[in-house]
């Protein structure tokens, strides 16, 4: 069974001047323990897709949703708001772009870690939380976990906060981790370390990952498979290596060209918008969507 399966998902936001269509029927799946990247520019619909998976948009009155979102075989639209809430922070968790602003500045790390652990184990006390948190922080190579737990987020560096976020996101052993541009707010060196660490951790926990990014270079060493998304449509999907060796869709090629090269091949000319970007989805052989009844 796939951890996540999305089929023909459409999304629109209803406003004063009619409905704005954001997703035009996207399909994707993530197998158990698989790391899948969703790559596209700002406004492509990658972050709203993550919010739908988390169940955050379903209850919004202005959203128009259709299609199937299935998490571990359960249709999310058939769950109540309460049941969806129960999944967040336990079976699925999320890592955000800027770690320092997604941690609460007025509580020490321990308090926030305790809150996370209580989502899965309401009876856990502060002493128990401390023991588990220390182990989790040691796993993400924080050398003095006890001191980190007593610190406030602003006393730690961006890289440390990012590691705390990773440890928290994996603390309840979720089956799905959603990582929305993790580390883009940090130095490239720290970002590279963070990605290596995240990869190690999800491999150990066997966690499935939906990795969201605008930079194809960043996903190359992290993801097993890639979906490229453009204006709410999937442009290309396939295994990571094949996508880099043989990018078929004009938009994928533009995204690849845009990544600055350390070998220096001049500044690329990239078309702002092109009809070619709307070409039908390119599916690499054997990497289509699984069939089957909803």
């Amino acid at each position: 069974m796939n951890t996540l399966r999305i089929r023909d998902l459409t999304l629109g936001f209803k406003g004063w001047s009619g409905t704005v269509e954001v997703l035009h029927g996207i399909s994707l799946h993530i197998g158990r323990g698989e790391r899948v990247a969703l790559v596209g520019e700002s406004g492509s619909g990658k972050s709203v897709t993550a919010r739908i998976v988390l169940g955050l948009l379903q209850s919004l009155r202005s959203t128009r949703l259709s299609g199937l979102v299935e998490f571990e075989g359960r249709d999310l639209s058939k769950l109540s708001e309460r049941e969806r809430h129960a999944l967040r922070g336990t079976k699925m968790s999320m890592i955000f772009q800027d770690p320092t602003s997604s941690l609460n500045p007025v509580y020490p790390i321990l308090t926030q870690f305790h809150e996370v652990l209580r989502r899965a184990d309401p009876a856990i006390n502060l002493t128990g939380a401390r023991a588990r948190a220390e182990k989790a922080l040691a796993d993400v190579s924080i050398t003095d976990p006890s001191r980190a737990l007593d610190s406030y987020p602003f006393q730690l560096s961006g890289g440390m906060n990012q590691r705390v976020m990773i440890a928290m996101a994996l603390a309840n052993d979720p089956s799905l981790l959603i990582a929305d541009e993790p580390g883009t707010a940090l130095d490239v060196t720290v970002q590279a370390q963070t990605l290596r660490l995240m990869r190690e951790q999800v491999e150990r926990h066997g966690t499935s990952v939906l990795f969201i990014s605008h930079n194809l270079g960043v996903v190359r060493e992290f993801a097993d498979r890639v979906y490229v998304i453009y204006k709410g449509r999937i442009a290309e999907q396939g295994p990571t290596a094949a996508l880099f060796e043989d990018p078929r869709h004009p938009y994928t090629r533009a995204l690849l060209d845009a990544v600055p090269r350390i070998t220096g091949d001049g500044i690329p000319e990239i078309e702002d918008a092109s009809d070619a970007y709307f070409a039908p989805t390119e599916v690499h052989e054997g990497y289509g969507e699984p069939e089957g009844a909803a």
Partner: peptide, 14 residues
């Protein structure tokens, strides 16, 4: 060298 090695790369030459 450390700064260059941290950059995500996309091509074989890189």
């Amino acid at each position: 060298r450390r700064l260059i090695s941290a950059v995500p790369v996309v091509t074989v030459a890189e």
